[in-house]
């Protein structure tokens, strides 16, 4: 248990520090690389929570898909527009105040609430089989509707991307 705590704090530290780099780095490529560490250590949390499938999906989707897409996007727009890839932060003080209030509120809620814990949190087995049964059983409808949403998104992006 002790070791697990240390690992948790390590992941938390990496997440927060790299998230700060994402926001404050002046170079957008540095931000993208820092985002890799943020996303990766978030998947570490899922492992600690025994959610092996979600951890894998996090790596596959966010790092394998979205992050690579972002980096490609930066490279391609840079080529096309020739614009300088610098970022800066606007409205620094108001956003610090707002995020401060929200963070304070969330911490207060976390500490003050009597949460209703999940019945059997530490199942030693892999969760993939259970998730599969749930997706094609109780959660069949949201799962199928998600595919309709993807169809709509596909139509929309094709419509916007077309030249004419």
């Amino acid at each position: 248990m002790m070791l697990e705590n240390y690992v948790f704090y390590l992941f938390a530290l990496v997440t927060i520090v790299s998230a700060f780099i994402v926001v404050f780095s002046k170079n957008i490529v540095h931000s993208a690389v820092a985002l890799f560490f943020t996303l990766f250590s978030v998947s570490g949390f899922y492992v600690l929570l025994r959610a092996d499938f979600i951890a894998l999906t996090q790596i596959l989707v966010y790092i394998g898909g979205i992050l690579v897409l972002i980096i490609f996007g930066i490279m391609l727009t840079n080529k096309v527009t020739g614009a300088e890839l610098k970022t800066r932060n606007l409205h620094f003080i108001p956003s610090v105040v707002v995020t401060g209030i929200i963070t304070g509120m969330i911490i207060f809620l976390l500490l003050s609430t009597d949460w209703n814990p999940v019945k059997d949190p530490f199942s030693p087995n892999s969760t993939i089989k259970q998730i599969g049964f749930k997706l094609l059983g109780d959660y069949l409808l949201p799962f199928e509707i998600a595919s309709v949403i993807l169809l709509v998104a596909l139509i929309g992006s094709a419509m916007y991307a077309r030249k004419k």
């Binding site: 409808l141 949201p142 509707i145 709509v152 929309g156 419509m159």
Partner: peptide, 17 residues
């Protein structure tokens, strides 16, 4: 709640397009 979210996203996504 999941269904509410998914259907709301379906409406939103189409509205954006």
């Amino acid at each position: 709640l999941i269904m509410m979210y998914i259907s709301l996203e379906m409406v939103s996504l189409t509205s954006y397009i």
